[in-house]
Amino acid sequence: MNSSFLLSITTFVYGLAAFLYIASWVFKKELPGRLATWTAIVGLAGNTAGIILRWIESYSLGIGHAPLSNLYESLVFFAWTIIVVYLVIERKYENRIIGAFTTPLAFLALAYASLSPNISDRIQPLLPALKSNWLIAHVIACFIGYAAFAMAFGISWMYLFKQRDTEGKSRLLAPFPKPVILDDLNHQLIMFGFLFLTVGIITGAVWANSAWGRYWGWDPKETWSLITWFIYATLLHARMMRGWHGKRIAYLSIIGFVAVLFTYFGVNYLPGLHSYGA
């Protein structure tokens, strides 16, 4: 069994977990919910094993390095962090509906990594510029941040649905956490994500300074991560002004995550370099 195969299987396990979470929400049944949690845990175990196995495989190929060096590996790690952050929240808030809105993101990330013809799952040797501990810290911090923003994105949609139904008529929306809780959870996740994005940008800057002698160069990827950072900084400040609660914050959170996605994928379509190989 090699790591790519194990991770492909994990993709389906995550898909099943997402399906069960949604089923448990829509049909208001407890059993699929509990199954969903266990499925997610099994998926997480597979995901973890896949990452470790890939690490070992790289060493047996004689080009050993942490499996965080290209788009495929970062997506695998992204899915892993989303599920970890989600499971923590599920435990803390004892609410599985959030899973219906967030585990699909982990499934999509892994599915994209495993199935997209544009993404190679080959273990490649590290280019000289990528041989840096700062880079590892950079990737880990960024993706923890992105995972928190992904959760906040899902929760913002939940908030937007829930707050429209003020009289509590909708059967589907009834089991959602209260809007205040969703709003607060959104904020907590964004603070958490903002801290890690900050650490991510900073470690990236330190890495750039050790590789190229400049900590900031306004290349499109750097600039987009800064744009993302500005958007979430706006959100944090806007929240402190009266009137900017709930809906507007949810919108900003959604825009912020779109910027995250653009930083991650969209930038490759822009003129410029930074992509992983540069």
Binding site: T223, W224, F230, P271
Partner: peptide, 24 residues
């Protein structure tokens, strides 16, 4: 005013996009 910082931060975010669309 904190409103000013919201406006400035958003302006920085939006204008920064230009330089990523046009190679510098």
């Amino acid at each position: 005013r904190i409103m000013l910082s919201v406006i400035l931060l958003l302006s920085l975010a939006v204008t920064s996009i230009v330089g990523t669309l046009i190679p510098q």
